[in-house]
Design a protein around this nucleic acid. Structure first.
Lengths: 165, 165
DNA sequence: CGCGAATATCTTGATGTCAAGACACTTGAA
DNA sequence: TTCAAGTGTCTTGACATCAAGATATTCGCG
């Protein structure tokens, strides 16, 4: 089946036959799919009164395992936002009693962000919901195709994740 | 090579061995890669005094071919933003003399957005730069792998693009 | 030990985005 | 022909994000 990127690439080949637009076949699809996923997640989470950015922070902490705490800096590398954004997110989650700030005992510049019991529940509940939604989206693909896709994407993400800016 | 999603999936398997988190292998990589691409594009475009959102709108119009005009509604489906956002974008691009608004002669509710000569130049220049950057990012992959990846991604995007919400 | 560079977090100000709804025009069915 | 429903665009208000820089603390070299 054709998608919007097929139309986009065809249009460029007509308008700019001098350019090689093949890279768009991959990377425009990645960007567009991410936006579709964002929308779908926003709608799904809104039923549980949760914003996607809240999910990202809460589940990062949940994954860390007991006692469910990370520094703001560690949260930055997991969520790919700037430090100002993370400060703001922690402020808002603190107001909602989903996380709390603790001084880092080993570095007085630092802070630790810890999940509250309520925050942990919210993380656990919403993860199951997200996985259901994602399984539906991936339904088209066979197990083998999903593995293939994951492997190819890993090759693209690994440089970003390992040679940090 | 390992990436951040490998670590994320391993953490979930440790913390929530009862859940099947395999969907994350694909879709978390898509979301994270899109964020990395956004950052890289923002940096690359800033050298030409161009924001990613400006690029998206200008190139959508450029692709349409002479006379380089589309309705705001058509631009919505190409850029995946809401109508309020598009109104705001068109306002700002108009102020910069990159596009202009014309009344739609066949529907008095409607408007056509047309690229100015300056806007067209900007679109053409920035596209070449983006393609160079994307080629570098894809450099790791063989031609065959890129085609494989594009095909798998198309299967995921096609439902979103063809069964619109 | 002492000091300059590095690190961790927060603050500030500008800006872009979204959701919801208002408004104007068009369409189609009776 | 008429009007109710549909469509296309814009307005509004709240809010999340970013870049740049401030502040406090730690680290490492001499």
């Amino acid at each position: 089946m054709e998608d919007e990127v097929d139309r986009l690439v065809a249009a460029w080949r007509r308008e700019r036959p001098d350019l090689d637009v093949e890279p768009l076949e991959v990377l425009s699809r990645v960007s567009r799919l991410a936006r579709h996923l964002d929308r779908a997640r926003r709608i799904a989470f809104s039923e549980h009164n949760l914003e996607p950015w809240e999910f990202d922070v809460l589940t990062s902490l949940r994954r860390a395992g007991a006692p469910y705490q990370l520094s703001p800096g560690q949260l930055l590398t997991q969520t790919l936002v700037t430090s100002g954004t993370m400060t703001n997110r922690i402020d808002r989650l603190t107001k909602k009693n989903l996380v709390e700030r603790l001084p880092d005992p080993s570095d007085r510049r630092g802070v630790l962000v810890r999940l509250t019991a309520e925050g942990r529940d919210k993380a656990d509940q919403s993860l199951a919901g997200l996985l259901d939604q994602e399984r539906a989206i991936l339904g088209e693909l066979s197990r083998h195709q999903r593995a293939e896709l994951a492997g190819l994407l890993r090759q693209l993400t690994a440089p970003f994740d390992n040679i940090p800016t």
